[in-house]
Each structure stands twice: as structure tokens, then as C-alpha cells.
Design a protein around this nucleic acid. Sequence first.
DNA 1: AAGTTTCTCAACCGCTACGGT
DNA 2: TACCGTAGCGGTTGAGAAACT
Length: 299
Amino acid sequence: MAGVANSVYTCPNEEENEMRKGPWTLDEDTLLIHYIANHGEGHWNALAKCAGLKRTGKSCRLRWLNYLKPDIKRGNLTPQEQLLILELHAKWGNRWSKIAQHLPGRTDNEIKNYWRTRVQKQARQLNIESDSKRFLDAVRCFWMPTLRQKMEQTSSLSLDPPSSSSSHSNYLTSQISIAPSLSTSTQTCSVPSSPPSKVVSHVSDYSPIGTSSPSHNSLSSDSLISQLPQITEQPASSSYAFEALNDNYYMDYDMEGFSLDPVSEMVSFDTSQFDCQMAESYWIPSNYMTDTLWNMQGM
DNA sequence: AAGTTTCTCAACCGCTACGGT
DNA sequence: TACCGTAGCGGTTGAGAAACT
């Protein structure tokens, strides 16, 4: 599919039935949003035709679910979310959709991207296969504790929302109301006012969902999994209460804060130490990890 | 400032599951 | 039972942005 992604092209023998590919335009987004607002989602092929979109139903579905849906969160993943992803991935593997069910507002695509770009990068730098037990142990023994520590540290900070406007809030200007068929209550759906191809946004661009209770700001080092609501296989509703994930939502976390120091630091690092049967306090000084391996500068 | 490399993430593809006929 | 259409999932790609030299 070389050269396809960004060049909207049409199949030569589909003069009349030309299907668009590549990045969505503002007009297309608007069409899709308005159509779904009025008719609801589903039956994507028919939807695409009826909405006047020269896109496949599949493309429409993906655009809606991964980008346009009103409750989609964007921006850096919080430490809570990162930790949850690590834990759930350790539990379920590449079941991105299943993992995403436990992170309200996050899409499987986003989680998948996070894993590939951030987590696997760490594995590469450690010279460990990202799907190996070694790396899993490294994540469990170093990354997760560090994240937990960071969560505890940041939970004590005040969570005053930033006053600055954002690129995203500029991006979202006109609003339309979503038909009840889409949700139990009327909610707003934003129509992009500028080309949506690249939205640079931060977590702070979005309203917090569950920051009302200060008691939620403090997370123990227990597994977040244990704090999950009783979700089994049913699709996660964006409205279910998953307070832990919404905490600290204003914080501008950056996963890059976990980037490793130069690989030279790692050369002498014996990954065979990654044996979680050992007590945390035994196998490595936590400061060492924090300062040299999982560099927390960005936090 | 310009060129190069690395990173991010939106969007695509192929495949499978499932329901209807 | 086979076929077809649709929905959904996970893997992959590549353009543009950011970082680096």
C-alpha cells in the first residue's frame, strides 16, 4: 500500500463509485458526525452511502470509533493508565480491544500504538524481546513500581485545572447535539474546525471526568486490576465509574519521561535479575532504577 | 539553516466471528 | 450446509512532526 496513506486516490475502474482513502477531511468528519447524531451508529456500509461519504463502512466505523466519538480521550496516558495497560497486557497479551474496555475513552488503536511505540521501544533498548518473560518481569519489577511510586507522588499535588486554552479546544468549536439513540442523555459532539489530520493536544485539553473526590487521588500500590469495576466481557461503557483512571487527569504526563538513559547505561545491566520471585527491596535499589533505567525526568 | 533520523499515530489491510438467508 | 454481508480485531504502514546532527 505504498503511497496510499496520504494521497487520497480513487480506484481507476470505479469512476462512478470512487472510494476515498487517506486522511479524513473536515467535511467528511462533519458529514459523519451529523449523520450519526441524527441516525445513530451501526450498519456502517449503509451509513456511508446514506451520509454521502465516499468511504467504506469500515473506514467510517474506524474514524468514528477512534477519533470522532465524543467520549474519546486524547493526550498522554496517565501513569494510572500506563500501569493498567502494563498489567492488563501482562494478563491478556495483545488483546487490545479487551484492554481498551478497561480504559474509558481510550481506543484499542491508541493502546496498541502506545505499546508498540513506547513499551516495545524500552524492550528494544534493553535488548529483550517485548513478549518475553524477561521483559514482562522487567515491567513488573521496575516499571510498574516506578509508575506506582509516581502515582503516589503526584496524587499529593493539587489538581487545579490549567486555564490556558488548547489547540484542541480551538479545534473543537462548533457543537451539535447527539441524538438520544447514541446515548442515554443528550451530549455534545464537537465538529472539528480545522484540519484534523494532526491534533496536537495534551491531557489538560480535556475536562476531567472524575476528579471530584479528593480521596481518589491517592492510589495504593496495589494492582489497579484489583480496583477495576466488575467488567467481564461486556463492552465497556464510557460512563462507568472508573475513578482511578480519571484522577490526575489534568497532569501533563509524558511517557517519554520513561525513556531510558543512553543504552550504555544498560550494557552492564543483567536482565537475568528480573525474577519477580525476589523481594523488590532485594533485587535492586529502587533509586537506581528510577534514576538510571526508567528515567522519570518528564514526570 | 539544512539535512537526516526517529517517533507518533491515523488509517489501512487481512482475517475471523457471527447472524441471516 | 453453504454462502454472503457486516462487525470487529490485531498487525502493519507511512506521512508528518519532532528531535538530532
